[in-house]
Structures are given as C-alpha cells and as structure tokens.
C-alpha cells in the first residue's frame, strides 16, 4: 500500500519530464536557423544575379554545409522529443522555418542587382578591382585595375550594390518572421557569394585577407 504514492510520484515526475522534453524540443526546433534552406535560398538568389555556375564549378561548393551541421549542439531532450513527437508535427515545424525570398519587391532588387552585375560588377570582379568581402558585401580592393572613366563611378555603384544587399538580408529575415536572423542570413550569403564566385574573382577569407578563387 505504501508503494502507490511512490509509483504515483514517479509517474507524475515522468509525465512532467516528458512534457518538459516536448516543450523544450518544440522550442529547440523552432529557433534553429534553417542553415540548409538558407543556403539553398541564397544560392538561388545569387545564381539569378550572377548567372548559373557550370557543373564542374559547382562540385566543390559545399564544405560549409558539413562544417555547420557538425557544430550543432547535441540536445538529449530534443532527441527524446523527436521520438515522442508525431512526425507530422516535426515536419510542419520544419516547414515553418523554410527560408522564402520570393516577393515582387525582393525580385525587383534582384533584377536591379542582376543588371548592375552585368553592366559593371562582373568586369570589375574579373580584373580584381572589387572583391567579395566576408560580410556579404562588395568591397573595392584595387582601384588601379580599371581606368579613370570606370573608376569614377565605382565608389557610387559599389555603395548602391551594398545598400541593396543590406536591404535584401534584412528583408529576407523579416519576411521569414525572424528579424533576429538578419546576421545569420548575411553570414550565409557571405559564404554563398564566395562559393558561387567565378574563378579569378577575389574574396576575403575569415581573417580578412584577399584570396583569389
């Protein structure tokens, strides 16, 4: 007879633990930045702007994905919850953190960036006058690589490009209901701009040194 309360107590504690696990797990899933989805979205956007990569070039693009996956925190509660939560729920959580960047306004910016890329930036990337920095922006690195007639517009065009890029990163975060993701989206774009860069373009490595792709 004395065991009953004990069993009750164990049962209650177990129940609390499971409920806690479920709650924690739900939260954990939702706050994860959807790295892979963001990368896919960034790749689509970038390839629209600079044109698609040829297949051989695309082959070595993905080391960053592996690195990110392995650095994710190990959460036993989340694993437990993963077993307990019906898979449909997990899936819907996953869907809700998909990264979407399609809107007429973002597309208008993309169109503007594509034209700018074609008219000015592509040639400047090629001769090394500008490069991709490690914050997802474009930086002037060697003005002397282009003549005076081009160079006089470089400062303004690069400033316009960076204003557009900043707006895109911010609005993608806001459109996906997570303004606080702005910095992560920017980091993802920084990685993907470099991964999608054409051979010969310059980019900044993590310590800020210029490298040639």
């Amino acid at each position: 007879m004395e065991n009953r309360p004990l069993i009750k107590r164990i049962a209650r504690n177990l129940f609390v633990a499971v409920v806690t696990a479920v709650l924690v797990a739900c939260v954990t899933i939702n706050v994860y930045f959807p790295e892979a989805a963001a990368e896919r979205a960034a790749d689509r956007f970038i390839q629209d702007v600079i044109g698609p990569q040829s297949e051989t070039e695309g082959a070595f693009l993905d080391p960053s994905i592996d690195r990110r996956v392995t650095t994710r925190s190990f959460n036993p509660l989340a694993i437990m919850a993963g077993i307990l939560i019906p898979s449909a729920h997990a899936q819907s959580s996953q869907q809700s953190v998909n990264i979407d960047i399609e809107s007429p306004q973002i597309n208008a910016i993309k169109q503007r960036m594509t034209e700018r890329q074609r008219e000015h930036l592509a040639a400047w990337f090629e001769v090394g006058a500008i490069g991709l920095d490690n914050t997802g922006l474009v930086e002037i690195r060697d003005r002397s690589a282009v003549g005076l007639s081009e160079r006089r517009r470089m400062e303004q065009i690069v400033a316009e490009e960076n204003a557009d890029r900043r707006a895109v990163y911010r609005e993608i975060a806001v459109a996906n209901q997570h303004p606080e993701w702005e910095e992560r989206i920017r980091e993802t774009f920084a990685d993907r701009w470099i991964a999608n860069a054409r051979p010969g373009w310059y980019f900044q490595d993590e310590s800020g040194n210029w490298q040639r792709k």
């Binding site: 003005r143 002397s144 005076l148 007639s149 160079r151």
Partner: peptide
Amino acid sequence: LAFDTPEGLYAGG
C-alpha cells in the same frame, strides 16, 4: 596630363 597613384585612389586625365 594623366597620372595615377599605385592604389588608384588619386588619378587625373
């Protein structure tokens, strides 16, 4: 007169 500096910051043509 045309001139250019090594880093291209100052130039004239």
